[in-house]
Design a protein around this nucleic acid. Sequence first.
DNA 1: CCACTCTGCTTGCAATTGCAAACGAAATGG
DNA 2: CCATTTCGTTTGCAATTGCAAGCAGAGTGG
Lengths: 164, 164
Amino acid sequence: MALPKVGSIGEYIREQRQQAKISLRQLAAAAGVSNPYLSQIERGLRKPSAEILNQIAKGLHISAQALYVQAGLIEDRETPSDVVTAIRADTHLTERQRQVLIDIYESFRKEKRAGDEQTSQNAHPRSDSVADDEQSLPEELRAALEPYAASTGNGTVNQETKEG
Amino acid sequence: MALPKVGSIGEYIREQRQQAKISLRQLAAAAGVSNPYLSQIERGLRKPSAEILNQIAKGLHISAQALYVQAGLIEDRETPSDVVTAIRADTHLTERQRQVLIDIYESFRKEKRAGDEQTSQNAHPRSDSVADDEQSLPEELRAALEPYAASTGNGTVNQETKEG
DNA sequence: CCACTCTGCTTGCAATTGCAAACGAAATGG
DNA sequence: CCATTTCGTTTGCAATTGCAAGCAGAGTGG
């Protein structure tokens, strides 16, 4: 049934291995997996688990993410915005906090775009056409955030926020 | 090695799920895995494959990398997703906006740390009031975020995850 | 020619994944 | 009180992972 449709990952591993000029058995030993299994992985007959994938990545001295992307386990275009990505990847926030933070960030971006239109004679034609009036731009939010930012009393942001 | 010592990943998934306030079955359906299996994963009795992990990440609306890091499948330094760094590096924000975002982010972190101290005792939450059980936010911030967060329940305006 | 070593591949088999079905507990309602 | 729903969990089972053992071919050299 679930036969080899995982070819790309295997091919990729084999490419990387041959490029490193090491034998299948050598890589198998370096990665801590058996040679027959690695053989089957490279030919797309088996679908390796994440753990095996990680060990193979180490054996190949390549980033594990490269393998995961090849295996389709990570969206390659997982970068709509660096800030959004970072927020989504933050393990110390709740789901709700993430949503709120992202929404605030996007409303900030809109605000800034609106402000930039006055200084820039060339407006960006938004072919995407997000419904402008549908967006609930939080006026109350903005009104509340301004005094909040002022009330923090730090004209210069404290740049050391280290934690253990 | 009968029992795999993968407890942390399961605990992390359970934490994220409870913070998102969805049931085990709901997440299982959203992730496309069976509920008993998800239950076993959360309790560390089973070691999910990368594919399952990826689906769970989607169901939780978190980055797959976050899960892989927790599972020990990716080195921490491979994910440079630091929210503060990303905000500071964003050229599409004004300095003021950056500062406010960072402040909000840090207050969220503090908030969650305070809330995490009692996550183990999670009674059955009645879903009649969504924004009632939130913790202590700065007054002005909370007053502004409450109605705003309520509107972000399901229909996000700009970007929505396409599922289907 | 035969022994040795390297290459990758095929074959069973134990262990594990992942799921369908079913179970007890707690809440809602007739 | 009992039916119903929802919650997380337990129980068997098919399918798969991953490995030890063994196979065939290509060098190398005594």
